[in-house]
Amino acid sequence: MSEAIRNPAGPVELEARELSVLYGETRALKYVSLKIPDRQVVSFIGPSGCGKSTLLRCFNRMNDLIPGVKIEGEALFQGRNLYGTGVDAVDVRRRIGMVFQKPNPFPKSIYDNVVFGPKINGYKGDFSELVERSLRQAALWEEVKDRLEANALSLSGGQQQRLCIARALAVEPEVLLMDEPASALDPIATQKIEDLIYDLKQDYTVVIVTHSMQQAARVSDHTAFLYMGEVVEYGPTNELFTNPREERTEAYITGRFG
């Protein structure tokens, strides 16, 4: 079993230690331990309800918002327990950004969407410079530079999602969590998001939840396969897909269930 969890070498950005999440009496995540390396892309795959989103949301304490949720164990960011005493969820989320499954831009202008985070965080620099930089990072600048005052909801789904990425990057986080960021998008928009993820790992640690194994194989350096709230296998992406050590992993990636 232990050889199924192969933590990468090198500096660790995020780490789960015996991490469990309980919704009432149900343990949705069961004693998960794994390490996520600095400035690489890690993907979580697994069938619906396996706990991959739940695990992801532990790393920016989004689970805190669900009434009746209980977290056991530790989730560490740069060696510090995110659930330790004196750690404020708001500070955590300013350093660990998130992009959601469905594009959720605010019903405001494109510009206001990007500056939302910096404004509440008391950013003092040049806002228009920040907006341009964030939109360029999200590969959206060229498409929207002439209509920054347009409502964000006038954008296409793929553009909206890149705007959400720009919005998250504008806060200058160190980690970007992505919860099935392309599942609501068409193949071309998906391609753009995937290219973007590839570029982002120069500067950011990216953790992505996906139900598409092809996507995990394309974008990530390491992949964790979760099933029934446990990490069944974790290792370098190409190894996990070509030479799975666990029978359940093999069954899932060959399409026998899930």
Partner: peptide
Amino acid sequence: PRSLREGAYALGATRFEVATRT
């Protein structure tokens, strides 16, 4: 929608900021 609130929370908004700004 809940997704808008989550979007604001994920940017480091406090509960009050989520309420008043989103």
